[in-house]
Amino acid sequence: MNLQKTLGPQASSHLRLIGMALLWGASWPAGRMVAQHMPPLAASGLRFVLAALVLLPWMYMAGGMGQLKTWPTRRWLGMAAAAATGVFGYAAFFLSGLQHLPASKAALVITLNPVVTLLLAAWIFKERLNRTIGLGMLVAAIGAALVISHGNPLQLLSSGVGVGELMILGCVVCWVSYTLIGRAILTGVDALSTTAVTSTMGAIMLLLASLLVEGPQGMANAVQAGGVAWGALLFLAWGSTALAYAWYFDGVKALGAGAASGYITLVPVIGVICSALWLGEQVDASMLVGGALAVAGTAVMNWGRRQPAALAGAARAG
């Protein structure tokens, strides 16, 4: 059977996007393995050093190095801000949170990303929200609250949020900031250049922070970690970072950003499944119900964001 004929001319792009979702979903149990054996800042620094060793040559072969000389100071400052939030802050919170929280639960909490991003985009950039998007945001937020509170959202008012949950919520804040900074400052820069440069800058920030906070022993402990931890770290660097981004860029180029982003809805589901299979983590009823609501809400939001474009296209066709 010819897969290209069965799935259509863009079959390879769809398959790469499925692979991207698998790699990003598997990053949660892999991160949990790393967090249990390495100091978080040292491990994060090594992760992005390894990623930069792939991304920078890739950028060079794509002909992107020449543009760096023409970038104005404002763009470099934007890159530094994006690196500080999307790489340094996110990576530090990611592994720190996974020291305290099961990977499956963390993967579901992160579904708050699109909710917070859309709310702030509506406030800062006056992006329009419709009823479908609003419904999706509400459903996703309720789902995330159920996961964070173990099925009892009112408990958040009395006992607050645990350390692990706070760290993963820090991931949400950093990723949303990274997204909004990219929209405000980095318009016109291709995704590969942004990823390569911010990964390199973030790696330097993480290594310096590790030296200051964890001391030289932190890096020594990371280097001396066992084969399982290093295997997971290499997977995070070259699988979940370099290869997954390559497949995502291919999907955006071939199918458009809307279609490609739809596959991201699969990431938390895959994260929960991989965590249960690889780490033996227990998935309770609150995670199943809350996770299903969070994923469904994200899907509804994506659908709602495509509605205006579809209506505009229909109006032009008419």
Rank of each mutant, 00 (worst) to 15 (best):
G170K: 07
C171L: 09
V173Y: 06
C174G: 12
C174H: 03
W175S: 12
V176C: 14
L180G: 09
I181Y: 12
I181M: 13
G182Q: 08
G182P: 06
A184H: 12
L186I: 07
T187H: 14
T187F: 12
T187A: 15
G188Q: 13
G188I: 11
V189Y: 11
A191I: 08
T194E: 09
T195A: 12
T195E: 02
A196C: 11
V197M: 13
S199D: 01
T200K: 04
M201G: 07
M201Q: 05
A203K: 06
I204S: 09
L207H: 03
L208P: 01
L208D: 06
L211M: 14
L212V: 15
E214G: 13
P216W: 07
P216Y: 04
P216L: 04
Q217V: 12
G218T: 08
N221V: 09
N221P: 08
N221H: 14
N221C: 09
N221E: 14
A229S: 15
A229N: 15
A229I: 12
W230I: 10
G231R: 10
G231T: 14
L234V: 15
L234C: 14
L234M: 14
L236Q: 04
A237T: 04
W238M: 00
G239Q: 00
G239K: 01
S240K: 01
S240P: 10
T241G: 05
T241V: 06
T241H: 01
A242S: 05
Y245F: 07
Y245R: 00
W247I: 00
F249I: 02
D250F: 04
D250S: 13
D250H: 11
D250C: 00
G251F: 10
V252T: 04
V252R: 03
K253Y: 01
L255P: 00
G256R: 12
A257H: 09
G258W: 03
A259R: 15
A259H: 11
S261D: 00
G262D: 09
G262S: 07
G262K: 05
G262R: 07
Y263A: 11
I264M: 08
T265F: 05
V267C: 02
V267E: 03
I270K: 00
I270T: 04
G271A: 03
V272C: 07
V272H: 01
V272A: 06
I273V: 14
I273F: 08
C274I: 08
S275T: 11
L277M: 11
L277T: 02
E281I: 08
E281V: 10
E281M: 10
Q282T: 13
A285D: 11
A285R: 10
S286N: 08
M287S: 06
M287R: 02
M287K: 05
V289E: 03
V289W: 07
G290R: 05
G291Y: 02
L293C: 04
A294E: 06
V295Y: 01
V295P: 00
T298I: 04
A299T: 02
A299G: 02
V300K: 05
V300D: 05
N302M: 12
N302K: 03
N302R: 09
W303I: 10
G304D: 08
G304P: 13
R305P: 09
Q307I: 14
Q307V: 14
P308L: 07
